[in-house]
Nucleic acid binder design. Sequence first.
DNA 1: GCCAAAAGTGTAAGCGCTTACAATTTTGTC
DNA 2: GACAAAATTGTAAGCGCTTACACTTTTGGC
Lengths: 339, 339
Amino acid sequence: MVRTDRVTIQDVAVLSGLSICTVSRALRKLPNVSEKAQVRVAEAASKLGYKASAAASRLAGGVTGSVAIVAPTATSWFFAQAVEAAEEVLGDSGYDTVLISLRNKASVRRQFFENLENFAQRVDGLLLLNIDVDPDEMEALKACGLAIASVGMRHVPWDNVGIDDEHAAWQATQHLLGLGHWDLAVLSSNEHSVVTETPRFRGFKRALDEHHLTVHPDLVVAAGPSIDDGRRAMAELITRGARPTAVFAHCDEAAFGALTALREYGLSVPKNVSVIGLDDHPMSGFLGLSTVAQPVADQGAFAANLLCERLLNNESPHQPSNHLLDTKLIERKTTRHKR
Amino acid sequence: MVRTDRVTIQDVAVLSGLSICTVSRALRKLPNVSEKAQVRVAEAASKLGYKASAAASRLAGGVTGSVAIVAPTATSWFFAQAVEAAEEVLGDSGYDTVLISLRNKASVRRQFFENLENFAQRVDGLLLLNIDVDPDEMEALKACGLAIASVGMRHVPWDNVGIDDEHAAWQATQHLLGLGHWDLAVLSSNEHSVVTETPRFRGFKRALDEHHLTVHPDLVVAAGPSIDDGRRAMAELITRGARPTAVFAHCDEAAFGALTALREYGLSVPKNVSVIGLDDHPMSGFLGLSTVAQPVADQGAFAANLLCERLLNNESPHQPSNHLLDTKLIERKTTRHKR
DNA sequence: GCCAAAAGTGTAAGCGCTTACAATTTTGTC
DNA sequence: GACAAAATTGTAAGCGCTTACACTTTTGGC
């Protein structure tokens, strides 16, 4: 590295004619700095393009000026969008964004948490995206002493932003019911071993309940969040002999797969079967998939904002808040009245 | 931040009965440390659970231990995949990955380059993804003194990894020609004002040349890299009265749009028209789009590796290298023989 | 105007590590 | 063995910042 001579606090001190100490305080907007000094320092700093060294600040007991975004994977559209939105907010607040992808791998994940205490020295805060932590991991997170905010997590002792999954699933199901369908199949997430315990499944069930309908076990099938999984699940449903007139898939990708399987089995959508997803994947508009949209970028941005606030006044130990953003039914071409 | 009394290198030195300096060297496996010392230090360190302070190492060593990945946007599948692959490589080499998205906005981009000299103090290297820099920006990049590597850039004075766009386009076109099509339309990228100057267009043209065919201007249309743009472009082609038997779209997303437009105009694919894209978008398999695949993750990983090498032996001023990775024709359901 | 209190500023001691360079020990040769 | 060269180890000076604490200036009440 050709180390171009770094602009240090010393340079700012000299240019502003004040001591290093005063500059340091002025820069961090600490009390006991006169108006004049503030201005002089600000001018000098901006003229020199000065930015504190993260390593030095950190070592001396201060802050690093960067926060990490931790995602289970960085390749899915959901995370990519949330990350970009968060990065924008963080950048505007002067933080660098360090990206950590757990790559959907247990080993990577384990290593991250084992190394967390050490990693914590390199950032001021953590923005967790849909990481469902086990007790040990929760312990590590609490112990690392970082400010934390999250997207899509439940019952966590820090600020969280998400959607009401149960309600969103209810909206989707309600739409199907409103179209006169009552033989409803559901492709439910298998991320937890018990498929029927997920919020989205509960929303599905609640809608049925309200119409005095019951969930038929033969019409419930597990599906991961991928096209292939959705395809397999739908195929299983069909070969099982199930003949629903409408299908609710827990996410759009699974719905895409369902669409494929349906086509392969000669069933026409929406003529024979209606299909609705949940998420509003970027391709859903193109494919005409009816769905319930969730504001992905907004969630990332909102959570980033909460984290920044927390970072600024870290003193005030306020209650962790949980914000649920609105979801919206988007009717396209894969759902229609039962005839 | 609760500062738990940290185990420092001093503690290890005392326990192992050696000097701090020797411990430091032993820990980093530098030469000139005796076998004995190595072992003693290793034992002491593990007994104490010692982990070096990142901040201190960095401050003293003059490196930041992080590199920035700069992408025009972080939301497209291409960048998401390249970023994740690069992040993995960088992480394995001990670097944190700072994400910078230019958000496809001129203002963000300008700010980044104006601020580059300053930003350069916070990272050791830059990984640029498909940023086509103007002369001023190039100047800034050279001046910032950082190690640089890139993906998908041309004629740059640093290591680059990409694909042979011209060849890839040639492969796609050649496939169409091999199927007996000779009325070929092309949806060409409009990122540069002159559509016919892009490498992908040149590849298209070369394939035609080889078959002694000429490019008919009426069958050339500009299209951005989005479904909508592709749709618009294809629609324009059709309303123009053009009746190609096959279409080459410069990227899969444009091809998706072409598919839509074709369907809207009652043209059946591949019965009436064959369509081929380029990239192998994650949805292409699902949609059955024939295409030429480029290894996205590999490009990101490769470039990251080059950057890491450069970062390690920064002394050796070696020639910038340019690596072209292989692309591969993937025949699916949108192309067939002309009949 | 005087003086104590308040406000602003500076001095200097680290934070935990790396690294010239100096000091010491080991090795190898005659 | 003696001695130079090579290998190993230690000393000490920072890296750029924060922060007690000491010091200087301003403020305001009488």
